[in-house]
Design a protein around this nucleic acid. Structure first.
Lengths: 224, 224
DNA sequence: TCAAAAGTGTTTCACTTACACCCATGA
DNA sequence: TCATGGGTGTAAGTGAAACACTTTTGA
């Protein structure tokens, strides 16, 4: 009998630690004590998204803030025990949530790993994670999902660093600022970031989601 | 127990009939005699793609020429009998294959429908089909999948009409020609289309897939 | 010779890219 | 006052969009 599971690649971001994914340590064989993407079987009466959210809560204690279906993986031998098809999702958590979990889950059963310093993964999870990273990297360029990784109010400089990290290249600050602000999706809160160490404090902005929905309907196209 | 099926939205194209999808007439309840997307359950030892290809062959007799996973649909009540999760794919067949099948399957159990003149569909198949149409419309702009709907050798004018149909807008012939040819992916066969009726015959081109793979590696980006 | 359909270049405009100095803060 | 990090404008280049007449064919 074929079984169906959901798995979720959860991404978090902070200015200092870059982009990380949340992995869990397996308690039972196969791959006992190995790292894996959180997930589990779907219950009879829940939707796929509910299943993902439930499993994430059970296994890692987090609530995500953006969830999107990624791809379904169903090769016959991907699980050595029996045929399991996995419907994979990717999720984004806000920066403050990430740092909070980062502190509390450290050295526990669930742990954050920088996407450039990943451990060996169970099953075909390396491939799944790779697919998720590619999707996020590509998607951040034509949909405003970057804001889902930042706090409600964020320093403009953090946004720039996020893009530089994900796109893996330097960004011209003037051109980037010009482009982002010309979209008309950001609001200047008038506040300034609390600085640690030297340097001019960055302005604090917020993303106007309603305005984005509005402009979407009018045919606007987000693109960096 | 949750079961897993694959479904496939098969697209075909001809200059005169535009873009069509292949649907089958259901033999049994629920939705007996209603139209549905072809598909079926996955066998224990086949991959998802193999399942799609097998089901298409069994139900419609066709072999497709491009296959890509679309999305997985798993709402608890999408099938009234029991929980069935469907992993949907979309497929493209070449124009000559489409016209051949169009002649042979007419009035049979499998039939082509223009995407603007669809019948009522069983289950949540309307939503699945809508998702597939959106995907193809979007994808044709940034990946050379349009060629999968045309024959190996095709009149240039057909390509232009395909884009005009899918993008649902007029295309400036001069700009379109300039852009497509500047990509360096088409080869002029030196032949001319056989004309039916009046009008200058169109040049016959072919898509150079190897050259595309090559240029992809070198970082080229297809975009219309 | 007329109608239908495809081939073909140039100009304008908008957007992207390149590029450097000043300002605010903490040490 | 020095080091660090963020804010800011302009000019050149490149690619997209607008635009119409000529050529080939069948009737």
């Amino acid at each position: 009998m074929i079984k169906v599971a959901v798995d979720a690649i959860v991404f978090g971001y902070s200015k200092n630690e870059g982009v990380s994914v949340l992995l869990i340590k397996r308690k039972y064989p196969p791959f006992k004590d190995g790292w894996a993407i959180p997930g589990g079987f779907i219950l009879e009466n829940e939707s796929l998204e509910e299943a993902v959210e439930r499993e994430l809560l059970e296994e890692t204690g987090i609530k995500v803030n953006y969830l999107e279906q990624l791809y379904s993986f169903g090769a016959p031998k991907r699980d050595p025990r029996q045929r399991i098809i996995s419907i994979a999702y990717f999720a984004l958590v806000k920066s403050s949530m990430f740092q909070q979990l980062n502190a509390s889950t450290d050295a526990a059963e669930a742990q954050w790993f920088n996407i450039n310093k990943l451990p060996a993964l169970a099953f075909d999870h390396k491939k799944i994670l790779q697919t998720a990273v590619e999707r996020v990297r590509a998607k951040i360029r034509y949909q405003p999902i970057g804001f889902e990784l930042l706090d409600e109010n964020f320093p403009f400089a953090d946004l720039e660093k996020l893009y530089a990290t994900l796109l893996d290249r330097e960004i011209d600050r003037r051109n980037f600022t010009k482009k982002i602000l010309s979209l008309g999706l950001l609001e200047d809160t008038g506040e300034l970031a609390a600085v640690k160490g030297a340097g001019r404090p960055s302005k604090i902005y917020q993303f106007n989601k309603k305005r984005y929905q509005q402009l979407l309907k009018e045919g606007m196209h987000f693109e960096i």
